[in-house]
């Protein structure tokens, strides 16, 4: 989805050919979103099929040299994309959410330890992102910094969610450990 609109946005500026589009796309996205040239050609073919871009001239069969430009229909679709908010496609279907849900249900999995292992891994990731942020130049590397912020805040949100799971489980455990009638703690829990 993003590659499709990314290429449209680049072609909206000037006609271009596949290899240029690949390098420009990677530069725009902070130098860290690698796409392969095959993906560029497949995407362009679909855009052409849908009438959103057209090929200039006819260097038949030679993918590398063929230049493309955006059509009015392509321009309209790009504008619509920028004007509309992005809505998440499938919430809560990621592996981590499912793992935690299953661990809670399983009963014999140490959920607290699982959450802490995940928290540590996420913080370590966050530390690595932050090191790169600390080294980046706030003026020259704006695209890169915006991308890093996206990754950082997503990871931070994941950690907050882990903390919330943890707090929920703790409050359940402490409610279970303090029954309304005191003084019946002979058996070990």
């Amino acid at each position: 989805m993003s590659v499709r609109y990314g290429l449209l946005a680049l072609l909206d500026e000037a006609p271009s050919h596949g290899y240029n589009l690949k390098t420009a796309f990677e530069r725009r996205t902070g130098g860290s979103w690698a796409i392969n040239i095959g993906q560029v050609y497949t995407t362009i073919q679909r855009l052409e099929r849908d009438g959103l871009v057209e090929s200039l001239g006819s260097s038949a069969g030679d993918d590398e040299r063929r230049e493309y430009r955006i059509t009015p229909a392509g321009r309209a679709q790009l504008a619509t994309w920028f004007e509309n908010p992005v809505v998440a496609e499938a919430p809560a279907r990621d592996e981590l959410t499912i793992k935690v849900l299953l661990a809670v249900a399983a009963g014999d999995v140490d959920v607290t330890a699982l959450l802490q292992r995940q928290r540590r891994a996420s913080i370590e990731q966050l530390q690595a992102y932050t090191r790169r942020k600390a080294k980046a130049d706030p003026k020259r590397d704006v695209a890169f910094l915006i991308l890093l912020d996206a990754l950082i805040f997503r990871t931070e949100a994941e950690i907050r969610w882990l903390d919330a799971c943890d707090a929920r489980i703790r409050s359940l455990a402490s409610a279970a450990a303090a029954p309304p009638t005191a003084g019946s703690k002979e058996t070990d829990g």
Partner: peptide
């Protein structure tokens, strides 16, 4: 980063060696 829980240090985090940034485009 050290983690405290109920008055005990329970874990410690160090920066991951190779940060994966946005990987390949979907």
């Amino acid at each position: 980063v050290v983690f405290l829980r109920d008055g005990r240090l329970v874990d410690e985090a160090h920066p991951a060696p190779n940060p994966e940034l946005a990987t390949t485009a979907p």
